[in-house]
Design a protein around this nucleic acid. Sequence first.
DNA 1: TACAGTAGGGAACGACCGTTCTCGACGTCA
DNA 2: TGACGTCGAGAACGGTCGTTCCCTACTGTA
Lengths: 188, 188
Amino acid sequence: MPAPITEERNLADRETLLDAAEALFYERGIRSVGMDEVRAASGLPLKRIYRFFATKEDLVVAVLRRRDQRWRASLSAHVEQVAEPRERVLTMFDWLAEWFAEPGFRGCAWINAHGELGSQSPAVLAEVRAHKQAFHDQVAEWVGATGEPVTEPVLLLAEGAIVTAGISGDPAPAAQARAAAARLLGAT
Amino acid sequence: MPAPITEERNLADRETLLDAAEALFYERGIRSVGMDEVRAASGLPLKRIYRFFATKEDLVVAVLRRRDQRWRASLSAHVEQVAEPRERVLTMFDWLAEWFAEPGFRGCAWINAHGELGSQSPAVLAEVRAHKQAFHDQVAEWVGATGEPVTEPVLLLAEGAIVTAGISGDPAPAAQARAAAARLLGAT
DNA sequence: TACAGTAGGGAACGACCGTTCTCGACGTCA
DNA sequence: TGACGTCGAGAACGGTCGTTCCCTACTGTA
């Protein structure tokens, strides 16, 4: 009866689509990227894009969700190579420093999405809050293992470093935040 | 020769326009607010709006610039009521707490503008960076008076508190950042 | 080889955007 | 009073957006 498009190809194309959309949205903001640019960058026909995601908003949410999984997995993988709790927390800031130095770094995709769409799209707002909550819980676990009750300030230093580096283009805030976190965690 | 529109009225209407645009842009983001909504909210004819500012981008920059002056003046006025240097720095976080609790608080207008337009409009990017630089310089002065070399971490705590409170809607990060700053400034 | 049904490319649609233009009303000076 | 110059209101313009539709090509079945 049909015509092809195997299940594997569907999955691969979906990733291609999310890759293209994520890169465009992160670089240029969401509203300034048209669906036709997503089509051109992904190489997929508009019809298939709209079969994957019925609306642009759905695509945005899917991009944020997949980025959240990748971002937190990368952070965890990097940080959990270090066993000692205090060093483990400080290693998070080294990971941030590497991220800040990547070409095209432009701050936190969720903060950016929140500023642009947080009051316009409840779905995007929920996705942003879910990401921040997950990040919070992860950091709370790592900081908790040190026995020092400094989860919140460590988080604020990290968030502050992300936005400051994103705006200035200078990765230095990662090291500054790391040094401050080291002090809050107590001298070794 | 003429018809009226005195100079005083021009100045007053310009403020009315900036008030209306600032409220709309802050609440909803910039790109999702059309010039026709700015017209309706300000009560000014489109023709006069475009005589004040030749493009929407010019209007956005003017909104950010005026907000920067008002925001920093309000912060300074609040903080400089306190003479003792260490307390003065901590008072900044009390001011942040009051700001976070205002109805409609939705984070930092400059961070939001950067995420939405930073890569699209060099003029907006420059305005955002100018604001962050001015804030940095102000905080450096206050922290410098304490003799403790903690300007950068205090700034990161403040920025982190602003974004975290903006996304979560909870003003608690101000107090958490204040407590952390107190520790970094040393016990009294 | 004829057929059914879907895929892809791209035009088309209606809405809205930033910006400009038209036009009738009006205040000001000769 | 009459003519000029500017004003406000809103229509109009060209472009772009998200989304849908049309039409041709093609795959797989009998």
